[in-house]
Amino acid sequence: MNFPDDLKYTRDHEWARVQGNRVTVGITDFAQDALGDVVYVELPEVGDVVKKGETFGVVESTKAVSDLFAPVSGKVVEVNAPLVDAPETVNEDPYEEGWMIVIESTDAKELAELLDGAAYRKFVEEEQE
């Protein structure tokens, strides 16, 4: 399973690509694999304010519903709208084309609380045991 080192991760299985205060968010390879075929994605609107640890959307596979949790607090400045019509992208390319939103982070301290690739991999392995 692939957990790129240039990304940060949450224990809710989101990834975050941090570029300055712009944080791109999606779900991890582990999450998409566990969900199975994703058939529905519900995302917030540009301008919505999200809070770290709170839900910002929903992803559903044919068999399960899963909330999406914001890795950091801030304002949603971009939404991957094409995902709504092509939810399978989340399975096919979770880290690139399958990105979900971009958050303009308002609290730099929160970034430090995210896991790096190695720590997330360890977390996933422990969770599977």
Binding site: G36, D37, V39, S61, T62, K63, E88, N91
Partner: peptide, 8 residues
């Protein structure tokens, strides 16, 4: 088995 290659 709930799935092999994938549900879809």
């Amino acid at each position: 088995p709930v799935q092999y290659s994938g549900l879809l």
